[in-house]
Design a protein around this nucleic acid. Structure first.
Lengths: 295, 295
DNA sequence: AGTTGACATAACCTAGACTTATGGATGGAG
DNA sequence: CTCCATCCATAAGTCTAGGTTATGTCAACT
């Protein structure tokens, strides 16, 4: 569809629509902020282009032809459609979408990917609330939340969801330094102590993978983010959650220690508050989160 | 809806749509028949107006933002809608609609009203086929037919229909001249002889109105049109069909001789051929015929 | 390192759009 | 019946949005 050559002057069309609505050249001119002569001329040009009159000139009135009425309807709908879209876009440029997620998810998954969203949606401002305590969806403080657990949840609608795997990871430098082979008591285990999430402990991991030794973590952190930073710094082996450490696996700052993997039963869920006010901006953000989580 | 102040430059929008479709400023410029710089400037202006970028400038490519995609969709639909309407209107200015009707109906009903249709639909040319023989709808020669009779008909769809009444009429001059009172053997009866339609004869009329005398028509014509012209010329009393003589009653060239009226069981029907190709023009004509017949 | 192909920017130009001024028509007030 | 008020049309001149020319910038390719 190459429109330009198939369309007459858009100004003329805009004027025709106004004339039709006001049933008068003069009134339309007033509305459009131009003179009556300008309207008269544009309509005349348009009639010329279309090969037929659009208005019958009665004495102190005009009467639209049938074709004009048809065109007017089409124009009114189309312009209204465009205006609506434009106003939605303008409005979205002040829009703020608040996303709630845990500290670990924010740091390791959301923030690295947010640049992409901001590129694609320059008008939309994103506010991230990072808190490990369960986010209250009913308070209306967040527009979208990412929550780890098993759906469904009573306070929100799950619009996207993915599972995760756990694997022991370390820095490539540590990987080279340690003795090849399976994890053993000689490795430095880095542990996360936190009550707020089912962060698997090394004891649980080793039990599930039927190891024959006991882990004696040499480093303990109360935030998963610090655990991972320590591992990247070559301080030992940490339990890596696939989604969270994906960027580090990709840039090579973390590597799996071995091939062992464990699927956790929990899932990352994108949640919309039950009575959320939907806006273009929050829809866009939700759509992007969904796509990013599944990609 | 005052659109002008709520819309940015329509040229800019047109360009945005082209850019989105071609995924390139340069290509869009080519399509629009302007330079790349013009497109660049219009898009920049538009982005300014909307308060946010529409395209991310990648190295030798551009990537539309989400808002841009939304807008592009809306624009494409709206412009396509407008273009379709405009092309239909342009096409209709060469359109010819053929209407078939009897000679009497054409002369006395259709032609006097046709000026109004031509005013309202200056683009549409009307061709009238006047023939008293039954019109063959299957031949495709006519787009619309007006046929007198009782629906339904096997060869077409009835989209409008009205009954008619018969009354004795004469010129006002004759009315003054004749003796007041009911029709009598002294009146000059004008008769229509024709096999093609159930033109009521004076004999039938007088029988139905239980008259006590016999009509001896002094003038006979084989076309109803001539019968009516003779009556208007003051040559006597004719049987007037309401729909056909309406204009003469209105302009006073014919008056009812008395209050007697007879409803005929036949109806005027607007018929569309079963397998008619519908066009804007024929739709308009059909709609107008329907409205005119009922009004 | 140079070439190439994409978009950006600045200064200038022009045609389409607008204005001013005037005329013609006619329903309606006086 | 006359004249006024209020429509739209037209012509000629003016202006500005939109366009051009010319040049710049950038980064992926040779």
């Amino acid at each position: 569809m190459r429109f330009r050559r198939r369309l007459p002057s858009l100004t003329g069309l805009l004027m025709l629509e106004a004339v039709l609505r006001r049933k008068s050249f003069t009134a339309a001119a007033g509305e459009l902020g131009v003179t009556q002569a300008a309207v008269s001329r544009q309509i005349a040009l348009l009639e010329d282009e279309l090969g037929q009159p659009m208005f019958l000139r009665k004495h102190r009135a005009i009467e639209p032809t049938a074709a004009c009425l048809t065109l007017g309807l089409s124009l009114a709908q189309s312009f209204a459609n465009i205006v609506d879209t434009i106003e939605a876009i303008k409005a979205s440029s002040q829009a703020v979408v608040t996303i709630g997620a845990t500290v670990a998810f924010s740091s390791f998954w959301l923030l690295p990917r947010l640049a992409d969203f901001r590129d694609r949606n320059p008008g939309i401002q994103i506010r991230v609330i990072s808190q490990d305590a369960k986010i209250d969806l009913d308070s209306g403080e967040v527009d979208i939340a990412i929550r780890y657990g098993s759906p469904p949840f009573g306070d929100g609608t799950v619009i996207a969801s993915r599972g995760d795997v756990i694997m022991p990871v370390c820095s490539p430098e540590y990987f080279r330094r340690r003795a090849a082979g399976p994890l053993s008591a000689k490795d430095d285990f880095i542990e996360t102590d936190a009550a707020d999430r089912s962060w698997l402990s090394w004891t649980q991991w080793l039990a599930k993978s039927s190891a024959t030794f006991e882990a004696r973590p040499s480093l303990r952190f109360n935030h998963y983010t610090e655990t991972i930073f320590a591992a990247r710094a070559g301080q030992g082996v940490a339990l890596g959650w696939g989604a969270l450490i994906q960027t580090f696996l990709e840039d090579g700052t973390l590597v799996p220690c071995d091939d062992s993997k464990l699927m956790d039963e929990g899932r990352y869920n994108v949640l919309l508050p039950l009575k959320a006010r939907r806006t273009i901006a929050s829809d866009q953000a939700a759509a992007w989160l969904t796509a990013a989580l599944h990609g």
